[in-house]
Amino acid sequence: MSDLRDAGHLFRFVGIFVLAFVVFLVVRHYIVPRSFGQYGHYRGAAIGEIAALPVRFAGHDTCEACHVEVVDKKSKGKHAHVNCEACHGAQVQHAGSADPSTVKPVLPDTSILCARCHTASAAKPKGFPQVVPSDHSNGMPCNSCHQPHNPGMDAPANDAAAKAAGGAK
């Protein structure tokens, strides 16, 4: 016992050490987010936050739920596998509104839209249909002859349904 009589400074040192460790644990408890380490060395809650970001493109399944007649027309032509929003742009405001008819999407200008894909260039795959717009149509908009939803010239280009769907102007 006499060995410990002069060891008071050691106990004080251990006490300070233990106290500092407890302070560290308390501070750490409040600083480190709850979900940190849930799945790994990161904040697990961040995954949910990123997953909750707003969607802008509604997705073709949403479009096709209402626009059945367009799906029908598209399915017969070369554009069968082109999704609606590839041309019409992000439509979640239209699709997500209580009354979609109040939020009408702007119809794309075919002379710009079609040219983006179909302007002839040696860089494009050989089998892809391409034209030199100035030679091909002499400045006329593409949809004076081609229905965008079924662009082949054998398609019935002038039917009223096509006009109602926004194909022809």
Binding site: I50, L53, P54, V55, F57, A86, C117, F128
Partner: peptide, 22 residues
Amino acid sequence: TLCYHRITKGLTTACCEACPTG
């Protein structure tokens, strides 16, 4: 993010949705 907010809802990514040729 591979459109994480879309793929977790069963949608495809925006780039895949908009790609005309697949």
